[in-house]
């Protein structure tokens, strides 16, 4: 189609994993996903350590950012779970920052989006649901299983309702991981598709160059939209974790 026949439109190529760090990375299969996760963790740490170092009454930019993120998640955790939620704040905050940093790093060109892999979001979601179940069992003992039998339901319907509740409970990690992974992957695919259009059209000569402006112009608001999605999905991930923790702490 295009004059430059070497260019291929491959929107999925960006999600392929490659070993990094040379032979050492190859030996232990240390991919760019692992590297990005390590970088994200260090960036989060650096932001919070550097941001809170000054401890000024009137915060500077970084302190402001660190404090806003802290207060935002702190407020959300207590709003959603209640006063008991204070215990879970470090967990929710870590989760939120990790997901947020992963989503944002992925928007930088040539960087990898680790939240676009279901292996990673799935692992996070499995960890969350295991922890939620453990919290529920620890707080309520075997009474936790009354969660699956809502009060006031007719006894005849109980087997059906219990089964539906169990499925509903088990589908939480699936929907939690799928939502984040699908959002990130779809967004990055759309970006690549439009960027590829621009490149392919641009190689068609003058007419193509004029036409290439359109997909290029589409990509600019798309980047802004992806920025919104990156923050929103991190928030959704954190707030759903809070809602699940609330259910485990309060049972219904």
């Amino acid at each position: 189609m295009a004059a430059g026949g070497t260019f291929k439109l491959e929107p999925l190529e960006q999600f392929a994993l490659h070993p990094v760090l040379g032979p050492i990375g190859r030996a232990v299969n240390f991919t760019q996903a692992n590297l990005t996760m390590a970088v994200a963790a260090l960036l989060v740490l650096a932001l919070l350590v550097y941001g809170t170092r000054a401890r000024a009454t009137i915060p500077g930019r970084w302190q402001s950012l660190a404090e806003m993120l802290y207060q935002f998640i702190h407020g959300m955790t207590i709003d959603q779970i209640g006063a008991e939620g204070r215990v879970f704040f470090p967990f929710v905050f870590t989760l939120f920052m990790f997901v947020l940093m992963g989503n944002l790093i992925g928007l930088i060109p040539f960087m990898f989006t680790y939240t676009s892999h279901i292996a990673i979001t799935g692992a996070l979601a499995l960890f969350i649901i295991t922890m939620v179940t453990a919290v529920g069992l620890r707080q309520h003992g075997l009474h936790f299983f009354s969660y699956f039998a809502p009060p006031g339901a007719p006894a005849v319907l109980m087997p059906l309702i219990v089964l539906i509740e169990i499925i509903s409970y088990l589908s939480r990690p699936v929907s939690l991981s799928m939502r984040l992974f699908a959002n990130m992957m779809a967004g990055h695919m759309i970006l690549v598709v439009f960027a590829s259009f621009a490149v392919v059209l641009g190689s068609l000569g003058l007419v193509g160059l004029v036409g290439a402006v359109v997909p290029f112009a589409v990509n600019i608001p798309l980047i802004g939209f992806e920025l919104l999605v990156a923050c929103l999905q991190a928030y959704v991930f954190a707030i759903l974790t809070c809602i699940y923790l609330h259910d485990a702490v309060h049972l219904h």
């Binding site: 929907s175 799928m178 707030i239 809602i243």
Partner: peptide, 28 residues
């Protein structure tokens, strides 16, 4: 309350999220 606010943020997002809920329960 958070889910409510999120749903209000955009109808498209709410629709997609409801779809994700349906599909994931079906998968499980």
């Amino acid at each position: 309350a958070g889910a409510q606010a999120k749903a209000g943020a955009s109808g498209w997002g709410g629709g997609v999220q409801a779809g994700v809920e349906l599909v994931s329960a079906e998968l499980v």
